[in-house]
Amino acid sequence: MLPWLIKRILMLVPVFLAVSVVIFSILHFIPGDPIDNLLKIGSSPEARAEMEARYGLDRSLPVQYGIWLSNVLQGDLGTAIVARRPVADLIAQALPHSLRLGGLALLFSTVVGVTLGVVAALSRDRWSDRAIMGGVLVGSTMPSFWLGLILILVFSVSLGWFPVSGARGWQSLVLPVLTIGLGGTALVARITRVSMIEASGRDFVTLLHAKGLSPLRIQLRHVLRHALIPVVTILALRIGWILGGAVTVEVVFARPGLGTLLIKSLAQHDYPVVQACLLMLAMAVMLGTLMGDILQALMDPRVRAAMT
């Protein structure tokens, strides 16, 4: 297990380097210049050059990249140009909000999605199956900003149960979590249902039936276990969605978070912040892939056997 894990982690190093190059260079294609935001209007070219030198923007791109990467590796994410404070502070402000929202949305879509998927698979092709899968489909086809607004109108304005916006207290999490969670639920439910149905056809299930175990017990203890492998893999692979995919919902509910920070900094050409946000997302994605692999390995005896 350990050698496999080490090898797996080492494989991430070139990926990380490649990602960092992309993240660093892509921003320089965006028209506009953060220095314009800082300079006194009507400044001389000398003042501009001095300001560029101050932020290291006068060097060649590869040199800028080298400096940036070595700083990042030492944990220094730089200083935001427009927001005028350490990027790490901005990230530290935003990240907990994103993790809370994304984590709860993930939890919601997993619990609800798996439950619905199991119920649908157990009642395969009956009306309850159709109703669940139909409902789930409709839930996933509504644009999230639209769904968010409708939820606000119903639950905040008409019923007054939850706050309209912001990030004060758990009540303010309910509607955003629901908005994101409904989209994810569809994916989880669909995969759970299909894998359950597929796993039910496997040889070992026939064997268990032959042994005289109760069908429900077989489904919930053995079939579900198998069916969850693809669910876990997909969820782990899509971890970047948890952190970044909430952008629209964060905007609709006027919530702080990594997504809004990224969009705002992108609009302001605040390169260091955008780079740091993207890097955080990329690292979360890589971590998710790794976790997916590990979980898959732990849950699937065949993979476990192949590892040693």
């Binding site: 990926v15 970047g240 970044g244 952008v247």
Partner: peptide, 11 residues
């Protein structure tokens, strides 16, 4: 592809 697939399309 794996990496970009893991990023939300909206971003």
């Amino acid at each position: 592809v794996d990496l970009s697939w893991s990023f939300p399309e909206i971003l």
